[in-house]
Design a binder for these strands. Structure first.
Lengths: 142, 142
DNA sequence: CTAACTGCAAATGGTTTGCAGGTTG
DNA sequence: CAACCTGCAAACCATTTGCAGTTAG
């Protein structure tokens, strides 16, 4: 299902309203290829309309997270980053502490490990909330 | 090696000084069985001495983290929590979103999974920084 | 002695919130 | 037209920082 369709359906289902600001943020999230800070997203919003407030961006991102359209990444810095979840299914993220690169991993790719790990720990993990910090393949060779 | 010995050695090695405030915080971390907020730790400090400032507690906790004596847990709330690492070896933490229980897991216990996962992801994970959020064994049955 | 540490007070800064007015459905 | 949403401005608040005085080694 396309992002927009999913978006409209979820909005309707929950009695939320479609507004220009919300559509704008969703559209911008599509354009941004890298996980971005709220400031980044906000500045793109301002390129389109100066009157939109950053608090609306925060509120919209929260909404999009509810629908699994966007996920939040704990970068270890003060500011979080946000990315579109292209296939609308949960991801986990890898943040390289050396080069800063962020990768999204589809949970399907680690399904066997994640299941085993959950059994071993006897704990059901919210994988979409997971961000691993460490070294990416390039940086760990150095 | 005992905490105190490790502490003194690391301090000496780096040219840091032993102060009553630092010893006090380390001693309190031994007493606290549960991961605790800085406010909690600070109030225990104040039971001993009213003159110690919370900024010193923050600074000391940072120090203890350098030595792997204490680890920081992202509770998902605004405030972080801190616990003594009893065996001075890296842990990861599990935070139950239902009952709030926090468990520490020795990395040795998940060594086989962690290795496989790192291979699969082609990413070297800083496991001591990992906090999984989800449901503990008790809560997931409900 | 002197570099390191502390207490104090103030700043930080990303995020949240209250509210009056504007919009969506 | 009623509930929902937005912009604005102010509050939040855990954590950090600058600095002058204190202390460990």
């Amino acid at each position: 299902m396309s992002c927009e369709k999913l978006f409209f359906e979820e909005m309707k289902k929950r009695g939320y309203r479609i507004t220009p600001q919300r559509e704008m943020v969703l559209a911008i999230m599509h354009k941004l290829e890298e996980p971005s800070t709220v400031e980044d997203i906000f500045s793109h919003v301002q390129d389109i309309s100066k009157s939109v407030d950053i608090s609306t961006v925060y509120r919209t991102l929260e909404l999009l997270q509810e629908f699994n359209l966007v996920s939040e990444i704990d970068t270890g810095d003060r500011q979080a980053k946000f990315v579109l979840v292209h296939d609308h299914s949960p991801h986990l993220h890898l943040v390289c502490k050396s080069c800063g690169k962020i990768s999204g991993i589809h949970l399907q790719n680690i399904k066997s490990f994640s299941g085993e790990l959950e059994n071993q720990l006897d704990f059901q993990i919210d994988w979409q909330d997971v961000t691993f910090h460490g070294l990416c393949s390039t940086c760990k060779q150095k």
